[in-house]
Amino acid sequence: MAEKIIIVKNVSKTFPKVVAVNNLSFEVEAQTCFGCLGPNGAGKSTMMKIIYGKCTRDEKPMSQMSIFGYDPKDQELKIKYQSGVVPQDNNLDDELNVIQNLMIYSKFYNIPARLARERIAYLLDFLELSEKANSRITELSGGMKRRLVIARALLNNPRLLILDEPTTGLDPQVRHLIWDKLRLLKKEGTTILLTTHYMEEAFQICDTVMIMHKGQRIIEGPPRDLLAKNIEKYVLELLDAGALQDKFNDSMREQVRIDRSQQGTRLFSNNYDYLKTLAGSMESENYYLRQTNLEDVFLKATGRGLSETQ
C-alpha cells in the first residue's frame, strides 16, 4: 500500500456564524491527485487552509491530522517547508517583476541565490513564462499570473502541491496547459491536492474526487467509479417538458429517472435507445441527448446533501 501523505480524521472548523468543515475525514496517497469538489462555501478552501496552518481546526479529542506525519497544529513549518501552495488569490507583489517575485520567495525557503536562479529559469521554462521573466506583474494576463503563482509554489520542489481553484476564470488554452503540467508533476512524484468547481478538471487530472457540501463529504472515489456507481449512463435534457407531457406515465417511470428543476427536466436512463425514441418525437432544438458526466453526479449529490442536512 502506498504511503499516506495526508490523513485527516474527524476534522471540524466552526466560524462564529457558520460551520465551514463538519467532521470531515479523508486520506491522500503519495503521488496521486486528490480533488475537492463542491459549490461555493462548501468548506473546500477552509480545509486546504487547515492543512497548511492558515486556519486552525476546532479542538476536539477525536480530530486528528497528519501531513507527512506532522500535525499542522504545532508543526506548520515542517509541513510548509515541504509543500507548495497556490492560494485562491494571486497575491503577487505588483511593484516587483516576475523574477524578483520568485527570488523573494526563494529567500523564504533559504535557497542559495545561485541555485534559486537556476531553479527559477527552469520553472519559468516549465510553465512557458520565460519570455516574461523581466516583465512587471501588471503587464501579465490572468493566465500568466496564475502560472507564475504555480511556479512560485514549485520553488522548493515540494512533495505536496496544494492548489485552491487553480484554473478559475482562465481560458481553455491555459487550463489545458496547467492540467498538462500538473499531470507531469504527478508523474515525477508530487502529490497534488486541489479544489475546483470544474467537473471537467476533476475528471481530467484527479485520481480521487471528493464531493463536499456544507462542510461534509458526500461521496468520494475515482471519477469514473463515481459516474458508474452514482448515476445512469445517459441523460435526455428537455428544454420544453410540455412536448412530452402525455408520456409521463408509469411505464416511462420504470425506464427513466425524472429530475425536474427550474432550469428544465432531465430524464436519466441506462437505456440509450429508449431515450432516443422519446427524443425522436420532438423538435431537435428542444432536447439534448448526451452521456452523463461528473456534473450530473455533482448536482445529484449536492442536491441530496441539501435534503439530508435540512
Binding site: 513549518l77 510548509k80 501552495v85 492560494p87 497575491n91 523564504f108
Partner: peptide
C-alpha cells in the same frame, strides 16, 4: 487589499 501575507504564510514562515 493586496493579500501579501496570505502568500507569505503559505511559505515556511509563522
Amino acid at each position: 487589499f493586496d493579500k501579501v501575507y496570505d502568500g507569505m504564510l503559505a511559505s515556511p514562515l509563522t
